[in-house]
């Protein structure tokens, strides 16, 4: 008795048809899966909030304008030193400048006349 055997070629063709006829998910099913995904999704990490400048004192706000407390301290120190120079006796300044301020004139380029002299 002859038996009808399924050939490899026929089986491969059948499997290829099956591969092309994959069941398609319904829109409702996809929506359910997506709803699961969104409900289980971890929340994005929140960045730590900087305190608002308005919530701080006036000094802190000014410090921010100057680039921070250390910078403001430097500016204040310079201002104090400037005021001190302004009010102190000039002779006292000689100590710092080595007597330069006592000079009548100070020629920075003593021999620069040749630049402006013709001939």
């Amino acid at each position: 008795m002859r038996m009808k055997v399924m050939q490899d070629k026929e089986l491969d063709k059948l499997l290829a048809v099956a591969a092309n006829q994959a069941p398609r998910p319904s829109a409702g099913f996809m929506d359910r899966v997506l709803a699961d995904a969104l409900s289980l999704q971890p929340k994005p990490a929140e960045l730590p909030q900087r305190p608002s400048p308005t919530a701080e004192g006036l000094v802190a706000r000014i410090a921010v304008l100057f680039g921070g407390a250390p910078a403001l301290a430097g500016v204040c120190s310079a201002a104090v030193v400037g005021l001190a120079f302004g009010y102190l006796n000039p002779t006292t300044l000689d100590v710092l400048t080595g007597g330069l301020t006592g000079a009548e004139t100070l020629e920075m380029f003593p021999s620069a006349d040749f630049l402006t002299t013709e001939g």
Binding site: R24, M30, V33, A37, P42, P44
Partner: peptide
């Protein structure tokens, strides 16, 4: 895992079918 909703949609569309 970082909270990107579009990634949730893309993975759903790719893997589920």
């Amino acid at each position: 895992a970082n909270g990107d909703r579009h990634a949730a949609m893309a993975l759903t569309q790719r893997v589920t079918p």
